[in-house]
Amino acid sequence: MAESEHEFVGLANYLHLVTDPGFLPALGNTLALIALVLCISIGLGLALALLLERAVLGRGVLRLLVISPFFVMPPVAALIWKNLLMQPTSGFFAWIASLFGVPPIDWFASAPLIAIGLIVAWQWLPFACLILLTSLQSFDREQREAAQLDGASALAILHHLVLPHLARPMAIILMMETIFLLSVFAEIFVTTGGGRASTNLAFLVYSQVMFQYDIGVASAAGVVAVILANVIAFFLVRAVGRSLDA
């Protein structure tokens, strides 16, 4: 009897979850956040790595500056960005906006997901940059010089030689970041504290438990998060596993 009761309630929870108006947005937010952070951190990370690779002066100090965000705990990062930078009345960004005579953006009211994405991307940028930089430095100098003697332009060298060389580190960055980004929590917790526009799956489960005391639906959402993670893991691990073997 207890068993059948269990089974029945379980089904109802999933039904509840899927019909919960918060579920689909949370799923979308989860994926959008991952995509946003990956794009920014890898894109800017590559640009930064290309710049830093050539820097000779004060290399140590520059590196310290660039990698430091990676070591900042998420609540600290989120609070600094929220209160000192993105605050619409006294924040640094508001001041920049005022210099250009544009009204300041109220980040967490008008674009909370993007704001959170920026914070998270800032934390992961050093990771991408450091790995790409290390990989760039192992790029065969002679190969580059041979290409220059062949008359290849800097852009052609980047496209045909450097980027293929970076494919492997990029795959690893993709995998590692995705692992951690699937469960972004503290940045949401200390900035918006939830809300339809910025709740991801991890936070949805959390708020179901903490605010609505709905352990059944929360568990169902947890299971969905686990399934999503496994689907992504399946493809990522396959792709990256191959490149690790090589």
Binding site: S183, F185, F203, G222, V223, A225, A229, V237
Partner: peptide, 15 residues
């Protein structure tokens, strides 16, 4: 497989 378990959001087992 071990690494992929790392992708499970901790929240999945919070309860």
């Amino acid at each position: 497989w071990m690494l992929s378990t790392k992708m499970l959001p901790a929240v999945g087992v919070l309860i």
